[in-house]
Computed example of a mutant assay.
Amino acid sequence: MQRKSILSCSSSSSSDFHSWLTQVFGAMGGYYGMAVLVGVACLVMTSEGGATCSGVEGRAGVDGAPGRDGWPGVKGEKGEPAAMAEGPVDAHVLQRLKGEMGMRGSQGTMGPKGYAGDLGPAGLAGLPGAPGPEGKRIISGKSSPHQARSAFSAMRTLSAYPPFERAVTFQTVVVNQDNDFNKNTGYFTCRVPGFYYFSFHSVAKVGMCLRISSEAVNNLGFCDYNTRNSDQVMSGGVVLQLTAGERVWLTSFKDAQPDSVTKDVRDKFIIFNGFLLFSSPV
């Protein structure tokens, strides 16, 4: 913007005015006539007393319109990578950098065994397991024909009262395996060592006492006193372990019965049984 103003001048002598006029002529060129007029005016004012003349200040000009935005510049080229610094490297920087995996080291020595910790609370019961496979059926075996056997059963049917402290004899043998029992003597003789079961039953209208006697153990007695004059049954039994050759028999004995019972001739019945449970190991 060019600011316009009225030319002002100030002079105190003619030599000064002449110098000033020369400068104006050089600056204004073709406007020579106008310069002469201005110079004459200033000279007149100077001759009248050396007064100073000046023009009135002009107004500021109006701003021009803004110019257009420029076009974007061309993208710059990629910069060069930074050079690694020489000298010691920060250890913390190296820890953040991932290097190549090294070789696996050898296993270290086992440390000492630690102390046992406190027992924790019991856990919840687990789920039941799956059922196991079905078992195989086992065929039941049959007894060997050579397996040891021994059994007997004999009956006494005499009406006479069996004599005291004597082996009871029998009239009929129902079972007698390998003739281990002798009905005439009343003795069973062990042939197969093992465990046996012996029992007896009696029916009579009078009191009677019978004991299972054996060479293996103490005698075992049973008594039944009949005062009702009717048939009364008495029974007894025992398990004995016998060795080969030992005998077992049935004995009548007197306990609290009167002597008159020995003279009783009413019907009486006694049965004596025995059999092998299982043989003893060899």
Rank of each mutant, 00 (worst) to 15 (best):
Q2W: 12
S14D: 15
S15Q: 11
D16P: 07
F17R: 09
F17H: 13
S19Y: 08
T22F: 11
G26M: 14
M28R: 07
G29F: 12
G30S: 14
Y31V: 06
Y32G: 06
M34V: 07
M34S: 08
M34G: 05
L37C: 09
G39P: 03
V44I: 13
E48P: 08
E48W: 07
G49H: 01
G49P: 02
G58A: 05
R59V: 14
A60W: 09
G64S: 11
D69G: 09
D69V: 13
G70Q: 04
G73T: 05
V74M: 13
V74F: 11
K75E: 14
G79R: 01
G87C: 04
P88S: 00
L94C: 06
G99V: 01
S106C: 09
G108Y: 00
T109G: 13
T109R: 12
G111D: 05
P112D: 04
Y115T: 14
P121I: 05
L124D: 14
G126L: 02
L127E: 13
A130N: 11
A130S: 13
R137Q: 12
I138Q: 13
R149W: 02
S150R: 03
A151R: 01
A154L: 00
R156S: 00
S159Y: 10
A160M: 10
Y161V: 00
F164L: 07
R166L: 10
T169P: 03
Q171I: 02
V173E: 06
V175D: 10
F181I: 02
N182V: 05
N182A: 07
K183H: 09
T185Y: 02
C190L: 04
C190W: 02
G194Y: 01
Y196R: 05
Y197V: 07
F200I: 09
A204Y: 01
M208W: 03
C209N: 05
L210P: 01
S213P: 06
N218A: 12
N219Y: 11
C223M: 14
Y225F: 09
T227P: 05
N229Q: 09
D231K: 07
D231R: 07
Q232P: 08
M234R: 08
S235Y: 06
V239D: 08
L240V: 03
L240C: 02
G245M: 01
V248N: 03
V248L: 03
K254D: 13
V265G: 11
R266N: 14
K268S: 04
N273H: 03
G274D: 00
F275M: 01
F278K: 07
S279P: 09
